[in-house]
Computed example of a mutant assay.
Amino acid sequence: MVRRLNIDSDGQGGLQGHGGEQRAVLVYRTQSYAYWCKVFERDDLEFGRFGENFTVDGPADDEVCVGDRYRIGEAEF
């Protein structure tokens, strides 16, 4: 369950930089994994490797702005 301050059972190690109302969920693009596989010369990077809660096939980084809202299931981010 996604809540205002966190996702149930998702703890953070350092609350100064993670969690809270504006930093409760990290979303990462599937396309970014292809980039990092190339940079690191690896083919074994699994989704979630960068600590994201959701890995999505979404808009490019230069198409996303602070304040944008997206819906994943019934939750709005």
Rank of each mutant, 00 (worst) to 15 (best):
V2G: 01
R3Y: 10
L5S: 09
N6L: 07
S9T: 15
S9A: 11
G11K: 10
G13T: 05
G13D: 04
L15Q: 14
G17I: 04
G17R: 05
G19D: 07
E21I: 00
E21L: 05
E21F: 01
R23W: 05
V25N: 04
V25M: 06
V27N: 00
V27E: 00
T30W: 03
T30Q: 14
Q31F: 02
S32K: 03
A34W: 00
A34E: 07
W36Q: 03
C37S: 13
C37T: 11
C37D: 11
K38L: 05
F40C: 08
D43E: 15
D43K: 10
D44N: 08
D44K: 06
L45Y: 01
E46V: 11
E46W: 01
F47Q: 07
F47I: 11
G48L: 07
R49A: 15
F50L: 12
E52T: 03
N53K: 01
T55L: 00
T55D: 06
T55Q: 01
V56Y: 04
D57F: 00
G58E: 03
A60P: 08
A60E: 12
D61W: 02
D62Y: 06
G67R: 02
Y70S: 07
E74W: 12
E74T: 15
A75M: 08
A75Q: 10
E76M: 11
